[in-house]
């Protein structure tokens, strides 16, 4: 049983089901990646795990505890961090204030966590007093990830963290994400750049039309000729 698992999830945003019997799990210290064609329900699967849509069937377990009925906010308190794909920073607030707001639920001293985030993303330390809205796309994503890390989550969920950034910045971001995973955090992410993402993934989920099509280690999926042909462009 995985540390965080959405089991046999079925549901949608009211109306027709988008997910059918979909299962996604991730272990602590590992990276799990959800890939698949457009409209496969990748983001929906992640939102389901975070409680942003109602499941008709199936359940979500974290560390053995059933959290299916909890609101997204309650899941943040339980130790889940979520980085949305868009509008994921407070644009009018400084980088430092963004991080402070990330740690809003914490009552204790946050300076150490902020140091860790600055160590992870040195550029943010340099730009700490600049409004996040003035940063480049890649820097913004770093702020977004940093903000989510401020609660010291056990699970970090990233919705297409590399959308709209250059390939160099993408590699850089992936390196950072690996570093975060090494600290023992479970990372679940949805990615458009399937090849690069599977390269760093411990576990990969290929979704098609809201169902699990292939589930294996990232390496095995990369080597699977069918997956290569259909989803990775040969």
């Amino acid at each position: 049983m995985s540390f965080l698992i959405g089991e046999n999830m079925t549901g949608g945003y009211g109306g027709a089901d988008i997910l059918t019997n979909c299962t996604i799990g991730v272990e602590q210290g590992e990276i799990a990646v959800i890939v698949g064609p457009n409209g496969a329900g990748k983001s929906t699967a992640m939102k389901a795990i975070f409680g942003m849509l109602n499941l008709r069937e199936g359940k979500v377990l974290m560390d053995g505890e059933d959290i299916t009925k909890l609101s997204p906010q309650a899941r943040v308190y339980k130790g889940m961090g979520f980085v949305p794909q868009t509008s994921n920073v407070f644009t009018s607030m400084s980088v430092e204030e963004n991080l402070e707001m990330g740690a809003f639920i914490r009552e204790d001293d946050i300076s150490e966590t902020m140091h860790q985030v600055f160590d992870l993303f040195p550029i943010l330390k340099e730009k700490r007093n600049q409004p996040a809205g003035e940063l480049s796309g890649g820097q913004r994503q770093q702020v977004a990830v940093g903000r989510a890390l401020m609660t010291r989550p056990k699970v970090l969920m990233l919705d297409e963290p590399t959308a709209g950034v250059s390939p160099i910045v993408m590699d850089e971001l992936f390196d950072r994400i690996i570093e975060v995973a090494r600290t023992g955090i479970a990372i679940l992410m949805v990615e458009q750049n399937a090849k690069q993402a599977l390269n760093i993934a411990d576990k990969g989920y290929v979704l098609v039309q809201g169902e699990n099509r292939y589930t294996d280690t990232g390496k095995a999926l990369m080597e699977n000729p069918e997956v290569r042909k259909s989803f990775l462009g040969g």
Binding site: S87, F90, T91, S92, M101, I105
Partner: peptide, 22 residues
């Protein structure tokens, strides 16, 4: 102040403020 900043955060990006536990 923390409360004041949380007000600015809420006014800036309501969804993200909710995700941050405001």
């Amino acid at each position: 102040t923390r409360t004041g900043k949380s007000m600015r955060a809420y006014s800036d990006n309501e969804d993200l403020a909710l995700l941050s536990g405001i």
